[in-house]
Every structure is written in C-alpha cells, then in structure tokens.
C-alpha cells in the first residue's frame, strides 16, 4: 500500500512523497532565510513582505493538510496526486514573490512592489508555472508507482485516450472563474493603478486558460485506471484494479471544482459520455470520455485477466460488475 515513506511489499521508498516533503520544507526555509541574508541591502518595508509571504505559505500548507485530513477515502493518493501538487504551487508562489521583491529592491533607494512591474510579474508567473509542473510531475510519478503492475506477467496491456474541453467547459470556466476574477482584477486596478501590470497579466492568463482549455489523459492498464489533467482545473485521480468495484457509461456535465471533495473524484471536461467507476469504498470517480463504452469493456477484460491469473491485485472485493450502460 502507498501509505508512508516506504511502499509496496518490497519496501520501495515513496519518492514522490519524499519529494513533496523536501520541496515544501526547502521552499519554506528558503523563504525564511531570504531577508536575513539580504536584509542589510534592502529597504525596511521588505520585512513586511517577508512576514506576509511566510504566513501565506504556512496557510497554504495548513489548508492542504486540512483537505487531506477531511478526505474520506484513498487519502494518500489524494494527497500525492491532487492536494500536494496544488499546495506546492501556492507555497512556490509565496517564495517567488518574496524572491522577486528581494531582487527588485536590492540596493534600491526606494521600496518597489513586484506587481508594479510587468516584467517581474511575468517572471513570477513563469516560476509559478514551473512549481505547477513540479507538482504535476511528482503527482504523475505517484500515480504511476501506485498502479505499477504487481503481477509478474509477460503480457502488458495499455489503453490510452485523451480528452479535450468543449464549449460547455469554457462557458462554465468563464462563469465560475473568469467573471469573478475579471471583476476582482478591475477592482484592484481601479483602487491601485500601480497594479495595472499585474491585472493585465492575470487577465491575459485567464483568457489564455479559457482559449486553450484543459485536457486530460486516461490510462487503463492491468494495474488500474489513471486520469491526469494537464493543469489542475480538471483534477486527476487513480484507482488500482483492487479498488475498482464497478464501471459504467454515464452522461456528465462539467462542474467548477478542483477535485477537493471528500470522496471520489471528477475530471469532467465536456458534456456527454463519461466513464464512471465506483470504488470498493463507495466513492464515485468520473472522467469525460467519448470512448467510455470501449473503456468499460477493456477494464472488464483486464480485470478478468487479473482474476484468471489468480493475482493478488483483485483483493476481496467480489466479482467484477463491469458492463456498458445507457
């Protein structure tokens, strides 16, 4: 089980978990050290920034731990694949903002704020994207390790599909995130004209997000099912074959969430056909999938093959109830 720093029957180290812990601790320590190291060359106002961003980082970690604690099932996979990738981006944002503040004010006569410079806001946005990618990479590694085939079979099967957003996702994204964010940006820019570069960046990112949209990959192997969103808006989840109780085809609509629910998982990027898997714990996991019927058949076949091989992967969850449904 993937429940601690050591995983599996042969006690492999859980590298993604160790990576997340090391990255979080390193970022917080680096944030704490920045001002003491460069303090003598900085205006006194930067101390306020230091305090604010450290509080922001600790609050982000706190919220992440809260979301993990309230999770009812598959807590460790939820932590590694959903919560920690999100929190590392937030903690990284705090560090990047403070680092940018230090660099922009190094030996400066007057204090300058990062959000007043388009270039620095862009650099911070780039670094946050880098933190997101680090979280996404570690999350994907965690899912891959979790679903690694435990049966020593020479036969390997992989079913892959990719899902892209449709108009319904864009409309929802625009209504749920775009409109409130646009109003907030407008409010900030009107009250603090100096924040115009930051407002411009945020608006550009929102527009780009809506235009490009999200996409997700769905992978079914003998090990289980893995869904990964390319960004975090679609969420992602994974289930081992032992955790799968039943699967069916359903019709689903996108909803504005970050997969931070207490049970189950959603990665619904378009209206229409979706694969719904009920876990042995009762949670419902849904992913948009035009080829959902084919996925159900493949899932049943691979589960049947595992059962025939007498694999321990299946566990004691009873016979598969996998059939396409209207």
């Amino acid at each position: 089980m993937n429940t601690a720093a050591w995983v599996g029957q042969n006690r492999r180290p859980n590298w993604p978990l160790i990576g997340f812990v090391v990255a979080h601790v390193a970022i917080v320590i680096a944030t704490l050290l920045l001002i003491p190291i460069f303090g003598s060359r900085l205006p006194s106002e930067t101390r306020v920034d230091e305090s604010s961003w450290i509080k922001f980082e600790l609050a982000s970690i706190g919220f992440c731990l809260l979301f993990i604690a309230r999770r009812r099932e598959h807590r460790m996979s939820f932590a590694l694949e959903t919560a920690l990738p999100f929190s590392i981006a937030l903690v990284g944002l705090g560090f990047s903002m403070l680092l940018a503040t230090v660099l922009i004010n190094l030996d400066a006569h007057a204090y300058r704020r990062v959000f007043e410079s388009g270039l620095w806001v862009g650099l911070v946005a780039g670094s946050v994207f880098m933190w997101l990618m680090l979280g996404r990479y570690l999350g994907a590694e965690a899912a891959t390790n979790r679903l690694r085939r435990e049966t020593a079979s020479s036969r390997r099967s992989v079913w892959l599909a990719e899902v892209r957003v449709d108009r319904s996702w864009r409309v929802l994204y625009g209504a749920a995130w775009g409109v409130p964010s646009a109003l907030l940006i407008l409010l900030v820019v009107v009250s603090q004209p100096a924040a115009f570069p930051m407002g411009l960046w945020l608006a550009a990112n929102l527009t780009l997000g809506m235009a490009v949209g999200e996409r997700a990959s769905v992978v079914i192997t003998e090990g289980g099912v893995k869904v990964r969103g390319s960004l975090l808006f679609g969420g992602g989840w994974s289930l081992t074959m032992a955790e799968v109780s039943s699967a069916r085809v359903v019709t689903a609509e996108p909803r504005p969430n970050f997969s931070m629910s207490r049970r189950g998982g959603r990665c619904v990027l378009r209206s229409g056909s979706a694969l719904e898997i009920t876990a042995a714990t009762g949670g419902r996991y849904i992913v948009s999938l035009p080829e959902a019927e084919e996925a159900v058949v493949v899932l049943a076949a691979l589960r049947g093959r595992n059962a025939a091989a007498g694999s321990a992967v299946l566990g004691d969850h009873g016979p598969a109830r996998l059939a396409p449904q209207e």
Binding site: S154, R155, R156, S157, V158, W159, L160, A161, V298
Partner: peptide, 8 residues
C-alpha cells in the same frame, strides 16, 4: 486505443 505486447 489498446496496445498489447508479450515480452516473451
């Protein structure tokens, strides 16, 4: 799409 291989 389903990919199946047999390493033996």
């Amino acid at each position: 799409m389903l990919f199946e291989i047999d390493t033996r």
